[in-house]
Amino acid sequence: MGAPRPAEGWGAPQTADNLPGGLSGTPEAARSRTTAAGTRVRMTQVEGKRALMDNDTSKPPKIACEKICKTFIQKGTQQVHVLEDISLEVFDNEFLVILGPGQSGKSTLLRIIAGLETPSTGRAILDGREVSGPGPDRGLVFQSYMLFAWRTVLGNVEMGPKLQGVGKKERREIAQHYIDLVGLKGFEKHYPHQLSGGMKQRVGIARAYANNPQVMLLDEPFGQLDAQTRLFMEKETERIWQAEKRTVIFVTNNIDEAIILGDRIVTMVGKLPGRMGPAYPVDLERPREPTDMRFLKLRYAITEASELVL
């Protein structure tokens, strides 16, 4: 026993333990929460083995979602119930991955944390204060890039500092730093339509970073890339994150991406409304190899559990 797995309420995947090369024991302190519907959702939270991670769970969380529900009201009466009782915590400098299938409300949750959407009930908390709107302390990277087509790479990346009223020379320097960091040196004067998908998303990441946010929110940033470019961008994301540590919430529907990147993986389950599934700590040293036995074992555990739930 001791492989990362959901707490017993979710039906522990038996087979995962039969695989060779089991994960080293991870003491898990599971806290239970009771949802409005009365079902018990157990949260796993890692304690010990902190050496592998830089985040610190002894301090209060950087971000907390408290029992967030979201219902969209469409055209008068029609209601779409998208999120049901979402509670999670993200710690300073932690790389948290939210893993869930399409339509499970991942984007909506991220937009609530970004302050672009208000929860119907519950609240999102950043540094102990309730989120009441978007702000430069949270950098957002969009699934569909959302670059300013009329601005060059440099113009896109310097937009944040520009809106903050940073002077021209200084914001050029900031933008250049992040353009170099994401590996786009030499492309400063290119317009978005002249870039490949991977390069566009690098611009998106640099643009979010250039505002020096405390938290990076990435919404399926590599969803539109081919498998090879995607793997490469995941490695790049890891490199960039290690160069400039931030608290990261990374949304994806790809298990491998989740395990490669996450300090911790929180799953979302269900077709409307989306609910919290089990959480998994990822106690694997970086960089992670998708062929590593422990990687595969964790992958197996997550797949198994999600099949039970879906």
Partner: peptide, 24 residues
């Protein structure tokens, strides 16, 4: 969503209009 970009970068309504609406 382009307006969301401006707002999440710390812009206000005026920035949305000047940086997105007009050029787009």
């Amino acid at each position: 969503e382009l307006y969301d970009v401006v707002r999440s970068l710390g812009g206000n309504r005026k920035d949305e209009i000047l940086q997105v609406s007009f050029p787009a």
